Simulated scan of single mutants.
Amino acid sequence: MTVDTISHPGKPAKDELVPSRYAVRVGEIEVLVISDGVLPLPTTMLAHNADPAVRAAWLNDMFLPPDAFDWSLNVVVVHSGEQTILIDAGLGLDPNLNLPRAGQLIKRLEAAGIDLASVTDVVLTHMHMDHIGGLLVDGVKDRLRPDLRIHVAAAEVKFWEAPDFTHVSMPPGFPDALRLAAKRFAKEYGSQLRLFDDEYEVAPGVVVHRTGGHTPGHSVVRLASGGDRLTFAGDAVFTVGFDHPDWFNGFEHDPEEAARVRIRLLQELAATGEQLVATHLPFPSVGRVAVDGDAFRWVPAFWDY
């Protein structure tokens, strides 16, 4: 996999009306952001601790609909040295949730010319189903390498043995779907899990750090090479989190800690000027963070063709 070959692997599918992959280079590390589609959710999910009028005003200021918001689903493929690393695996295809615009990862990997058998490592920022579901799609496991290594925080695996949903604010059906997906994933891929406590170097310049907050084992992945840096923040940062980093997202299992993690991370990214990619920022989700008074400002990257 090279930036040149994945940037122009062939003609897009006829039904693909928007771009779904974007290549970035971080020093000698090659990065490909791939859209897994979008996940429509109620806007209360953005901030269930916010005043409804203030939340509505933010949506209006962003020219977003008041009731339902399309969350982007972004996955990253990293090539460092001899390793090809998939960071998160998208939503997959859960027929009980009726989410036809999500779960696009596998076909988009194929469209980008990436063979599943070439993936040497998977890093999971956490085990919510929109980060592991792509590996649960029928037939996918058979196409993966038998020696595939799946890196995830030990605290995350422990949490899903008896998950606590007392502080979340999710639509009906989601807690059960999350439990079932995590249980199935642990059963199918348990022998390939490589657990770490707080930090682990997956490949040269590719380090995963546990942050906690969103889930106890939630992690971010930091890329560094040749003076360039990029952080894949998973679910530590959401679109509304720049203007209102103290708003609680409905999927956060410890929302107060998640807010503290988000603020620390945004402060660090603003100080270093490094690039940021996150699961639920609008595709391609590549940009930087600036301080804006008591909050922050998202600065999208200019697309490089």
Rank of each mutant, 00 (worst) to 15 (best):
D4E: 14
T5H: 12
A13Q: 09
V24C: 10
V33M: 09
V33N: 07
D36Y: 01
G37T: 08
T44V: 12
H48N: 09
A50M: 11
D51H: 07
P52K: 00
P66Q: 14
P66L: 11
N74A: 04
V76G: 06
V77G: 01
V78G: 06
G81K: 00
D94W: 02
R101D: 12
E110D: 15
D115G: 04
D115F: 01
V119S: 06
V119Y: 00
G139K: 01
R143P: 13
R145S: 14
D147N: 12
L148E: 03
E156S: 05
W160S: 06
D164R: 02
H167D: 14
V168D: 14
A177E: 02
L193T: 12
R194P: 12
D197C: 07
E199S: 13
E199L: 12
V202M: 03
A203G: 06
V206Y: 02
H209Q: 09
H214D: 09
H214V: 15
G217L: 05
A224R: 14
S225G: 04
G226S: 07
G227P: 07
R229S: 15
F232S: 13
F232W: 15
F238Q: 11
N249F: 13
N249M: 14
E256K: 07
E257F: 02
A259Y: 04
V261D: 11
E268R: 08
A290T: 00
F296P: 01
W303D: 08
Y305M: 06
